[in-house]
């Protein structure tokens, strides 16, 4: 028996919005410790890694490990039926071929039950080693989304260069070029508005704007985003999901011919 309850269904809606650009279907691996999802996009260029800890749910029970393959388009249709203030409960029996979603309004005046068929998906998990990154940039997530949107007007790819002075985002194409530099903030009132750089060595890497823009669909989940970079390894873009967990995106760099 699996059962996971979130008072704020809005969080699950936002999680779904954050992954459905990159993935059409995915397997949710449920265990005693929580819900994990790891999947690559069709081109095997980016990877989504979602971790929702069991202790972050308002109620959580998972008697046996369970892998639930879901079509994310269909899951989106169901989650759209939940009111923003509704509580959501996901339930499945052991070895079930369906997952149930129950939405309850604030005073339980309205209770809606939906069932969705599960799928058997071929899963390919990549082993991602613990890495000490040369540069870790923490910045406001909305600022990162804005930069990705603005620079993708200039070219298909964008360079991210990090030094101890700051982080520079640049792009170039037919219409011209764009450069945005962010300095580390000296002092800020609100922690979520800060730009913080932890640098061991300067790094400059180039990435496809299309994927970065997809990652920024997670912006509503967190006020801050963390970019982890080292030479010649994939970028990690991480959004915390409150006390519940995190979503990480991995993106392979582009290499000059």
């Amino acid at each position: 028996m699996f059962e996971a309850r979130l008072v704020q269904s809005a969080i699950l809606k936002k999680v779904l919005e954050a992954i459905k650009d990159l993935l059409t279907e995915a397997t949710f691996d449920c265990s005693d410790s929580g819900i994990q999802l790891q999947a690559m996009d069709n081109a095997h260029v980016s990877l989504v890694s979602l971790n929702l800890r069991s202790d972050g749910f308002d109620k959580y029970r998972c008697d046996r490990n369970l892998s639930m393959g879901m079509n994310l388009g269909n899951m989106t249709k169901i989650m759209k039926c939940a009111g923003a203030e509704d509580t959501v409960t996901m339930k499945a029996q052991d070895n079930a071929d369906v997952v149930a979603f129950m939405f309850e309004s604030k005073n339980q005046e309205k209770v809606s039950d939906y069932e969705m068929k599960l799928m058997n998906l071929d899963q390919e998990h990549l082993g991602i080693p613990e890495t000490d990154y040369s540069c870790i940039v923490k910045m406001p997530s909305q600022e990162f989304a804005r930069i990705c949107r603005d620079l993708s007007q200039f070219g298909e790819s964008m360079a991210i260069s990090c030094t101890k002075e700051g982080v520079k985002f640049s792009s170039a194409g037919d219409i011209g070029s764009a450069n945005i530099k962010l300095a580390q903030t000296a002092n800020v009132d609100a922690e979520e508005e800060a730009v913080v750089i932890e640098m061991q060595e300067p790094v400059s890497l180039t990435f496809a704007c299309r994927y970065l823009n997809s990652f920024t669909k997670a912006t509503p989940l967190s006020a801050q985003v963390q970019l982890s970079m080292s030479a010649d390894v994939p970028l990690v873009v991480e959004y915390k999901i409150g006390e519940l967990g995190h979503i990480r995106y991995y993106l392979a760099p582009k290499i000059e011919d």
Binding site: V45, H125, G127, A208, P234, Y250, K254, D257
Partner: peptide, 14 residues
């Protein structure tokens, strides 16, 4: 121009 690399170049299937 820059070549897009796949993740398999960095991480192997478990």
């Amino acid at each position: 121009t820059a070549d897009q690399i796949e993740l398999y170049a960095y991480y192997l299937p478990d």
